[in-house]
Design a binder for these strands. Structure first.
Lengths: 235, 235
DNA sequence: CGTGTTATTGATAGATCTCAAAGATGGTGG
DNA sequence: CCACCATCTTTGAGATCTATCAATAACACG
């Protein structure tokens, strides 16, 4: 019954509005797990065991197409939950969760989760809200992929990453975990080559500053202009 | 307390496993609504009032980008629910629902929905399952848009439509509602021109048969081969 | 039989992917 | 502490897919 974990839970969206006793119950039924950088929490296609809330560190959820191409579903940070959809409808995890830094998490087995939700409808409703939010994000991505050119998609992706994991540094906002060109490409439906070229161009304009697995946004406003502005024809 | 409505509810995924009394309560708190072909149930950005289950007919959910480009989120048939995400997290409808045929639906106000879910956790959990399924579909679409060429995406879209609304006719499977080239383009992130060209090519090969707002799949297997087969380089 | 919508088709331009090769970078083991 | 290796990144050139531009044609409806 770690008071730090307790504080974390209070801040997690799905546990909002639960009373002390309910939170105690939630914590009591949780198990703890650590996963080191580069290791996986679970793999696509595995029987869904548990759903998790990330306590510390960062991870990447990916899917592989039947043809073997990888797609990044999302990056996640502390306080975010994952694996929840598999614990309901789907029996299997739809993607692979890989730690990009050392991580700690709390997990609940399938049975424990269902039990908790039956006793605390609020929990199910909160989760519904979160999953709904994810659905909207995913649809936003469909919208982007359908209507935007690569450059704008990359700009959107970087801004989203900065929002999730941006750390202010002297010269701008730094994306605070190791991320490669390939990762960005898999987030935006392009190739690492195009990402590299785009970042190089932006670097020349002083919009970003990047290196091996490192990206710092120097002019967020300029990036936003690229992401939102000019109704495609203009460029 | 229409027994036909009652039968429908029993078959709707989110009401599964609810007992008689719960179903009675659900029906009692519902309101009925008819929306004629071409009219909208709600519009993107409107304050979310209700969530709905489609009883009869078919409708299309679309979103418009800030730049004014339209994207089709999904087509829906009887027994499917919609507008539910807005009733939780989001305050506003994220898209516009337009009837493509005359429709009838059952609706529950925001308040009624939350009340029902608090009393019947099962309902919230079922909804979570359905929304989770939608999330996976949406991610599958992201995957397609990221990794597949237009032709394959169109093939996938037609197969999905056939699965949802396919009606066996003498010469194949007919998509049983009016759908334009533009609609298909907005489902697959391409232009109506490309869709037209693709369908023309398939028509020559006898794979489909199509006309104004009408598409019939003659060789579902050939379409499937296009959708699933040849690891991009091969073509 | 107009009239507006929907669909077809050709030509052309551009954005991106592919293919290829070389250049950084950082970690590791000797 | 340094050389070496596996990864990650950059960049060029050419090939393609698909959007765009521009007309024309087919269709349904009042």
């Amino acid at each position: 019954m770690d008071s730090r974990e307790r504080a974390l839970l209070g801040g997690v969206e799905i546990f909002a509005e639960l009373d002390e006793r309910a939170l105690d119950e939630v914590l009591r039924t949780a198990h703890r797990r650590r996963v080191g950088k580069g290791e996986t929490v679970f793999r696509q296609g595995e029987e869904a065991q548990s759903f998790y809330v990330l306590v510390d560190g960062r991870l990447k959820v990916t899917q592989v197409t039947p043809e073997g191409q990888q797609v990044v579903v999302r990056f996640m940070g502390p306080g975010e939950m994952f694996g929840c959809v598999a614990v309901f409808g789907g029996r299997r995890y739809p993607g692979t969760a890989t730690a990009v830094e050392d991580t700690r998490m709390l997990g609940w087995t399938k049975g424990a989760t269902q039990h908790l939700m039956e006793r605390h409808p609020r929990l199910a409703m909160n989760t519904l809200g979160t999953v709904g939010g994810r659905l909207q994000e995913s649809q936003a991505r469909v919208r982007e992929l359908s209507t935007e050119r690569v450059e704008r998609r990359i700009a959107h992706a970087l801004l989203r990453l900065a929002g999730q994991a941006g750390k202010p540094v002297g010269s701008g906002i730094r994306i605070d975990f190791p991320i490669s060109r390939q990762d960005v490409a898999e987030m935006t439906g392009t190739t690492l080559h195009t990402v590299s070229r785009t970042l190089s161009a932006w670097e020349e304009q002083g919009i970003v500053e990047s290196g091996r697995q490192k990206i710092t946004i120097r002019k967020p406003d300029a990036l936003l202009a690229i992401a939102e502005d000019q109704p495609t024809p203009a460029r």
